[in-house]
């Protein structure tokens, strides 16, 4: 073992320089040319930073499109899922409560409630809804904001991100983006 100890020690030192100084330095340098300069892509509204494009934030006021339930209440310095198993009775009753709460707030909702509105995301910071999840809230928002339903519906349609080349992934709506557009619409 002695004969291997010194080379091992020296090799560790040089690899620390290659893998932990040079490699991150290159990634960091290139990141300066990327959107957000490697600091995360920030979104500003009326001259102040209101969030990160990729990081979900809490929208639970009824006049906004609500984001998904979150196990960490959208605290973006500590991500987490609910980790509830599919058969957990306590979990199932939570979901049941969310369904009736959603139906209470959205009495005009027809048909079943889209699953993402009553289930917590993996990160607790999911920035998206499915188009169905956004459309399901249109009636409520139009009523509370005194807007024609068709306009709110058109707003959602304009903010759907279609999947990359049809089959790579689901269609999504970024909730932050949609709500900022909604605010500007209401202000006009």
């Amino acid at each position: 073992m002695k004969t291997h100890l010194l080379p091992a020690f020296r090799l560790t030192l040089v690899l620390l320089i290659v893998c932990c100084v040079l490699y991150p330095a290159v990634v960091w340098a290139v990141a300066q040319a990327a959107p957000g300069h490697g600091q995360g892509v920030q979104v500003s509204h009326k001259g102040r930073v209101v969030g990160f494009a990729n990081v979900g934030q809490k929208f639970d006021r009824p006049e906004y499109f609500n984001s998904r339930p979150s196990a960490v209440d959208y605290h973006a310095d500590g991500s987490g899922g609910s980790n509830k198993g599919p058969s957990n009775p306590e979990y199932l009753s939570t979901v049941r409560t969310r369904v009736s709460e959603f139906l209470r707030q959205n009495p005009t909702q027809q048909g079943s409630v889209p699953a993402e509105l009553v289930t917590a995301s993996g990160s607790g910071l999911d920035p998206h809804l499915s188009p169905a999840g956004a459309y399901a809230q249109v009636g409520r928002i139009a009523r509370l904001r005194n807007l024609p339903e068709a306009r709110v519906r058109a707003l959602v349609a304009a903010h759907i991100h279609e999947p990359l080349v049809v089959f790579f992934g689901p269609a999504t709506v970024n909730v932050l983006e949609l709500n900022l557009a909604l605010d500007s619409l209401a202000n006009r």
């Binding site: 998904r68 899922g81 609910s82 980790n83 509830k84 599919p86 058969s87 979990y91 199932l92 979901v95 049941r96 369904v99 048909g111 079943s112 409630v113 889209p114 699953a115 993402e116 009553v118 289930t119 917590a120 995301s121 993996g122 990160s123 999911d126 920035p127 998206h128 809804l129 499915s130 169905a132 999840g133 992934g169 689901p170 999504t172």
Partner: peptide
């Protein structure tokens, strides 16, 4: 999807979504 949720009348056309992210979806997860 989760049959226990289907029984509550939840729309699981996108699959089981507890613990999943919308931009990735059930198949990619």
């Amino acid at each position: 999807g989760n049959p226990a949720l289907t029984a509550m009348g939840i729309d699981q056309r996108l699959g089981a979504l507890e613990g999943k992210e919308m931009r990735l979806g059930a198949p990619a997860s």
